[in-house]
């Protein structure tokens, strides 16, 4: 099974989010992938990284790791890893429009977007140890395919 990957390790500050998006989408652009699917993946990634930076460390600056893999030229797996406080109630966190910080104008749409833009979203979280979000998508639309 062929697998290619990149791993980004960075400080958990929101200023790094655009760089993470550019880095992962440039990596994925080596695939023959349609812009629509690339945008969906970028958006889902942005949500996962924003969550890790905004919620995992309560604004103290620690570390976020993003690992993007391409398997067999068609399956994309992105892991967003933090070592923060973890998610106590995953079902609640995933409820559309729920936000733990209502004062900061968040839409509470992060998980809803991840789930609708990706094939699979796995949340693996341990309180006080951290959270790993795994986003998976198999490419269907090819750039070179006229359809």
């Amino acid at each position: 099974m062929s697998k290619n990957y990149i791993k980004i390790e960075c400080k958990s500050v929101i200023e790094n989010i655009p760089a993470i998006r550019v880095c992962v989408s440039t990596f994925l652009a080596t695939l023959d992938i349609h812009i629509d699917e690339l945008m969906d993946i970028k958006t889902a990634l942005s949500e996962a990284v924003t969550n890790a930076i905004e919620h995992a460390y309560d604004n103290s600056e620690e570390q976020v790791i993003v690992e993007a893999s391409i398997i067999e030229d068609k399956k994309i797996v992105i892991k967003v890893i933090d070592y923060g406080k973890g998610i106590e109630d995953i079902a609640l966190a995933m409820t559309p429009a729920y936000t733990s910080k209502p004062e900061s104008e968040h839409a509470g749409m992060g998980f809803t977007i991840m789930e609708s833009f990706m094939d699979e979203v796995i949340i693996d979280s341990v309180v006080d140890e951290g959270t790993t979000i795994t986003l998976t998508k198999t490419i269907r639309k090819r750039k070179s395919n006229k359809k």
């Binding site: 998006r21 945008m39 970028k42 958006t43 942005s46 949500e47 924003t50 900061s104 104008e105 968040h106 839409a107 509470g108 749409m109 992060g110 977007i113």
Partner: peptide
């Protein structure tokens, strides 16, 4: 060129 749910929050706000 790009928008995520922060943009939704911005619009709703």
């Amino acid at each position: 060129k790009f928008m995520d749910s922060s943009g939704i929050g911005l619009i709703l706000g």
